[in-house]
Design a binder for these strands. Structure first.
Lengths: 237, 237
DNA sequence: CCAAAAGTGTTCTTACTACACCCATGG
DNA sequence: CCATGGGTGTAGTAAGAACACTTTTGG
């Protein structure tokens, strides 16, 4: 380790890909930039890491500041770091990106730091190559891919749901994130059969029509054995 | 994005978990530190990112400087970033860690920057909680786990082999990294049957004893469908 | 009683494990 | 011809896909 030569100063930021599901679409929280560079453009929430703060704390702090909603029980994991020399025209920055997942939250309240925050379908953000500032399109792409992959072998899908949910709601999460329909019967068996994925609450959901569904809470497991394979899982239609 | 307040200066480094297989053991390249902090202790190769250099370039540069061996065709991927405020007593640093995989290389030559570099079995490094400087034990753990996981669903295992290799050599990679014996027959079928994993060269290896094996080169595929599952794969003995 | 969604049963097919067995070479 | 590792065959088993079918509610 040649910790000997010069140490050029960097600014270190965190950027957060916060995903949720709204109106049958996978959405990300974005903020409208109020100052240059990229003034007026959308960007992922984030900001500078403070001097005595670790990286995860910086991510949760920025999330709280810009979301202005009690973000409880969100899933948060590190994605990757981005450090192209020209990624921010003002200075040399390295951004540590995070993936966060939350259930559908109320709209960010006006009159706060989050006044300019909004939920936008990721499809809209990714289709337009210039919708997002900086290299945030690449970061968002990475975040979505990570979320899609993790649904296969982990239980993070439950992070998109509230504290109590039905198997159909969880299936809806998978269908929206993966962009494909799944067989309800097989999905039910896999989810309820996977050790520690979900646990019954004993209560039933007040359904709109049809037989009311059993309510579940997330279970203790983080990983799924065996996984719900995206490639081979049965798609309906 | 509140890119408005102060931007505390950080030093940004890269640290590399370079893995190879030597003498039936998974080994990592480490260097002996010649100056404080942690003087005399082992550390992962790495160093400061330069002003006009992107992160991956910094990783390859440090690898070349400290290895002093033509590191061609190594696999290189970003692992994660580490930024605890106290991880380096001298200053606030964020380290972007990388996982590199290479075939068994000659020993680092003396008389170069890499004079203090050496291959050490990861077991030795991880068993002694104080063998490595900084938070490098955590980074190494993360790198090993990533490598173990990636053998399942990707073709990176071939990065441990030379340009041409036998199925048995590749199986040996899996056995060492996973720490378990695999059934030779089933492994052979999976590897040769997986689309794009390996391609025959038509030549045969000059075996020490027994029937000489077919030689293969790595194929074009990066991902394996279906994966070689670590959990369900047959272990011999 | 009908529609609709929840949940279960069942068949077909695929893929993997375990292990037997043959192949090809060196000593 | 024997030991050794390379490679193939194959029976038994586990798991998933597809889809029929039953259950339980609201209208």
């Amino acid at each position: 380790m040649t910790y000997t030569s010069q140490h050029p100063p960097f600014a270190v930021t965190v950027d957060i890909v916060l995903l949720t599901i709204r109106d049958d679409r996978l959405c990300a929280l974005v903020v409208r930039r109020g100052s240059p560079p990229y003034e007026g453009r959308l960007a992922l929430p984030g900001g500078f890491v403070e001097v005595d703060e670790n990286l995860e704390t910086a991510a949760t702090r920025e999330l709280a500041e810009e979301t202005a909603v009690q973000v409880k029980a969100v899933h948060l994991e590190q994605l990757a770091s981005y450090g192209e020399p020209d990624r921010d025209p003002r200075m040399r920055t390295v951004s540590v990106a995070w993936l966060a997942i939350a259930p559908d939250l109320p709209d960010p309240t006006a009159g706060t730091d989050a006044a300019e925050a909004q939920w936008v379908p990721v499809g809209n953000l990714l289709d337009d190559g210039d919708a997002l500032a900086f290299d945030h399109r690449q970061i968002l792409t990475h975040g979505v891919e990570r979320a899609q992959a993790k649904l296969e072998y982990s239980t993070v899908g439950t992070a998109f749901c509230g504290a109590e949910f039905t198997v159909a709601e969880l299936r809806h999460v998978y269908e929206v994130v993966w962009g494909r329909r799944l067989d309800p019967g097989n999905f039910h068996r896999k989810v309820t059969g996977a050790e520690g994925f979900v646990v019954e609450t004993g209560e039933r959901a007040g359904g709109r029509s049809g037989r009311p569904a059993q309510l579940y809470r997330r279970g203790p497991a983080d990983l799924l054995h065996p996984p719900l394979t995206r490639t081979s899982f049965h798609a309906v239609e």
